[in-house]
């Protein structure tokens, strides 16, 4: 079972928000959808969830186009960063409403999550703070029982404790249901441990679609004195470079060869790699 995006393209007037994005999301995986602001992450989620329609290309669920397909769409839940669910609805009303559409939705589990996050079910969405509104939306998504759950900015406004709780609950739910989770976030290092696979978007184009480990192993960071770093990296594909006084750091694609003394080699974090891959300048 999988969702396949085929040459998905979306343009607004003449601006390309997504440019021929093709990727596959297997059921039973947690994927990271990463990229800078305006990279096209939310557009992608909106297209998958039938909230918007592609200019070109299609989204297939087990080979069937999801566009205007109720049966296929009920297997997908997209939690958007925006407020699509009417904010004048109470949390318990939304949970009961979901039962009409998602036959596997679990109201008891939703209640349990509300308890864990100390969220009052009798409150309206409009009465909640940004953080609690995000929590409510995440609860709706996780209790939907959908096979593919897209979480767009699930950590928006959440404090550190709630974020930790959220990551733990996502992992628990993933183990219970084996649903696919696609998480779009800017807190990459915090979520890095969750991601099995990463999709990186840059200005609407998919620039990476790899296992997290493979992606991290595809580059290395070299630190040391600027002259030594420059000398070592000459002829190599430098993704990004930064300088601080006489010290320099470079993120280089490939495997490190013989490393001269005085230079330090390390594996880049996912966040470092993303910054390097999506930076506007400092390209080597």
């Amino acid at each position: 079972m999988s969702i396949e995006l085929k040459t998905l393209t979306k343009s607004y007037n003449k601006k390309l928000a997504l440019d021929r994005v093709s990727l596959t999301i297997e059921k039973g995986t947690i994927c990271g959808l990463l990229g800078r602001n305006g990279a096209g992450k939310t557009t992608l989620v909106n297209l998958v969830g039938n909230r918007d329609f592609p200019t070109f290309g299609e989204v297939l669920l087990d080979g069937v186009n999801v566009r205007e397909n109720d049966k296929a769409l009920r297997k997908i839940y997209c939690m958007g960063a925006d407020d699509l669910i009417p904010t004048n609805m109470k949390i318990k009303e939304v949970i009961s409403s979901m039962g009409y559409f998602y036959k596997s939705s679990d109201a008891k589990y939703a209640e349990k999550l509300c308890g864990e996050f100390k969220l009052e079910m009798g409150k309206k969405l409009s009465q909640l703070s940004t953080g609690y509104r995000t929590i409510a939306k995440v609860i709706f998504a996780m209790s939907s029982g959908a096979d593919y759950i897209f979480l767009d900015e699930p950590t928006l406004g959440l404090d550190a404790n709630h974020r930790e709780l959220l990551y733990r609950l996502i992992l628990e739910r993933f183990e219970e249901t084996e649903a696919a989770f696609v998480i779009s976030t800017h807190l990459i290092d915090e979520c890095a441990g969750l991601f099995e696979r990463c999709f990186i978007l840059r200005e609407g184009t998919l620039i990476a679609d790899e296992d997290s480990e493979t992606l991290r192993s595809s580059a290395f960071v070299v630190d040391g004195k600027t002259e030594a770093v420059l000398l070592y990296t000459s002829g190599m594909e430098v993704i990004s470079r930064s300088e601080l006084g006489t010290l320099s750091s470079a993120c280089v694609k490939g495997k490190p060869g013989n490393v001269p003394a005085g230079l330090e080699i390390s594996k880049p974090s996912l966040q470092q790699l993303l910054i390097a891959m999506t930076a506007d300048e400092q390209r080597g």
Partner: peptide, 20 residues
Amino acid sequence: ATAADSLIRMGVSCGVSRKT
């Protein structure tokens, strides 16, 4: 207008097609 807008938005967020 308020009720219909809510129905449309709830429907879309719960995977109901525009046609339906």
